[in-house]
């Protein structure tokens, strides 16, 4: 039905599960502005793009629309009294979140070098949610600071988990550790809703 895919994407019937980005946009951001600090390569371009997005999100929460959305989310009843449409802000917020997620996966894949199809996108949400919760955010309140701290901590735990646990248990435990930590964090957040 659809036009034939490019040969590297599939064998003519459906796309492969994992598409290599080698030679397309593999590491375009990572390589741009890359530099080395005492032997460690720092992907400068990716960091610059991330920084720019942080700034844009920060700025957005200072625009009229951003304030409206934030107010509507922290108290629906307050928002209604202030003449804000609850439904509209809900849709706006979801659209923006989805757009950012789309950008996020493009940035992720250029660094990772592959695009994963099918079930892979399903596994993206949970680690992200766990990150922001570990950063100290709650279901009703989150800042860019929470994002930065949380991502750093969560990824550190997973990176450190491997060498530490291998003292006791052999094998790569980080995937299991990720499951436990991320779902544990989400469960904890679920039990905290509506409490102060």
């Amino acid at each position: 039905m659809a036009p034939q895919p490019h040969p590297r994407a599939g064998d003519g019937r459906g796309l492969r599960t994992t598409l290599s980005l080698g030679g397309i946009y593999d590491k375009v951001l990572d390589r741009w502005l890359t530099f080395t600090v005492s032997g460690v390569r720092i992907p400068g371009g990716t960091l610059v793009v991330f920084g720019a997005l942080c700034f844009l999100v920060w700025l957005f929460f200072r625009t009229r629309m951003g304030i409206t959305i934030a107010a509507a989310r922290s108290s629906t009843r307050f928002a209604r009294a202030a003449g804000i449409s609850d439904e509209r802000t809900r849709v706006q917020a979801t659209v923006l979140s989805t757009v950012l997620a789309a950008i996020g996966i493009v940035v992720f894949s250029q660094s990772y070098g592959f695009v994963q199809l099918y079930t892979a996108p399903l596994l993206m949400a949970f680690p992200a949610i766990a990150c922001i919760l570990i950063g100290g955010a709650s279901v009703t309140r989150a800042t860019i600071g929470h994002v930065l701290v949380g991502t750093f901590l969560f990824q550190s735990i997973l990176t450190v988990a491997l060498p530490v646990t291998s003292q006791v248990i052999q094998g790569d435990i980080s995937e299991t550790a990720r499951l436990i930590i991320q779902n544990g964090m989400i469960l904890y957040a679920l039990t905290r809703i509506g409490r102060t």
Binding site: R64, I67, T68, A71, S74, S75, R77, F78, R80, A81, A82, G83, I84, R141
Partner: peptide
């Protein structure tokens, strides 16, 4: 509003934002 905490204020936000918000919106 009679319901200060629920309808009247955004308790987590600053005084200046609370004062300005309705006029900013409307």
């Amino acid at each position: 509003s009679e319901d200060r905490r629920g309808v009247g204020l955004l308790p987590e936000e600053s005084i200046e934002l609370n004062i300005a918000l309705s006029a900013l919106e409307a």
